[in-house]
């Protein structure tokens, strides 16, 4: 398995490769563990890696996924109805990290991490991070953790466990806040939420995206990844030159929802190829 830092170096040097023509952003795809089932999650993630995804985030399903729009919420509800637990997600991480080369990250809401291991009264954060690390995860994306509040030492503990704590920023992040986040985050990449709002495939990306990303760039030395709303090749085209990584979540779930159980993986493969091929 490639380390996250090496993969990010690859991605960035690949960007400079294309001097002259604009570099094509690398792709981070997303799965909700347990959607549509645990074995299918594994199959789909392997397909994604094989089809050219550079990074994959594994979302742990939660009852109240605040930052997610209807598509990913449905996938969360489906996975929970199937009985998926955070422990299952650890096992899926372990299986996948042994089978794919690309770096894998966990995406989770903070409450599940806090409750991890059911150690009544005690925070599950330390145990979660240790388990995530030994299962092969390389980074954490936690959308409901404001860095300035550093819940239970989240930032320092995550780095201490050898995982990258991925910061999230949005178009309404103030300069003061960006400074704080930049100071707290040390490695990995910056997750730039494309627009105010929740996840979900959108027809158009916001007009002022480029200016927003330039503003973010001034604060961080890490590569920029853009997510929320990205649903087709043309969107990734728009990002080329402004961001190193495009993140696609809901659009893949939409495809799985429309596919039969048999054809889901093949359809995902086709879609991921479309998004990654540099034409």
């Amino acid at each position: 398995m490639i380390t996250l830092e090496d993969q990010l170096k690859n991605i960035c040097s690949r960007s400079t490769h294309y001097r002259g023509s604009k570099p094509w952003p690398a792709l981070m795809t997303h799965v909700v563990v347990g959607y549509p089932s645990l074995p299918k999650t594994i199959e789909i993630a392997m397909t994604m890696a094989d089809a050219g995804a550079s990074l994959i985030e594994l979302q742990i399903p939660f009852s109240d996924p605040m930052a997610d729009g209807p598509t990913i919420m449905r996938a969360n509800e489906h996975a929970l109805a199937g009985g998926t637990t955070p422990k299952d997600c650890m096992r899926v991480m372990e299986t996948l990290s042994a089978r794919v080369d690309v770096p894998l990250l966990f995406m989770s809401y903070f409450n599940l991490i806090h409750a991890y291991g059911n150690q009544r009264g005690k925070s599950g954060l330390a145990r979660f991070l240790a388990d995530a690390r030994s299962a092969g995860a390389q980074g954490m994306i936690v959308p409901d953790i404001p860095p300035e509040e550093s819940h239970e030492g989240y930032w320092t503990l995550t780095y201490k466990n050898g995982l990258a704590a991925i910061p999230l920023v949005s178009p309404v992040s103030s300069e003061t806040r960006l400074k704080k986040i930049a100071a707290a985050s040390k490695s990995g990449f910056v997750y730039c939420v494309s627009t105010t709002g929740t996840t979900g495939a959108r027809k158009e990306l916001p007009q002022d995206l480029r200016a927003y990303l330039q503003r973010i760039r001034r604060h961080f030395s890490q590569p920029l990844a853009v997510g929320f709303g990205i649903s087709k090749r043309e969107h990734i085209q728009i990002l080329s030159g402004s961001a190193e990584i495009a993140i696609v979540g809901s659009a893949v779930i939409n495809i799985i929802e429309k596919s039969s159980a048999k054809s889901a993986a093949a359809n995902v493969r086709k879609f991921v190829r479309q998004l990654t091929r540099n034409s």
Binding site: L80, P86, N111, I113, A115, N118, R120, D144
Partner: peptide, 19 residues
């Protein structure tokens, strides 16, 4: 149990996994 949901930390009715 203590949980952090909907942007605040308080007592929440949660299952063993934090749902």
């Amino acid at each position: 149990r203590i949980g952090i949901v909907e942007g605040y930390k308080s007592y929440w009715l949660l299952d063993d996994n934090g749902q």
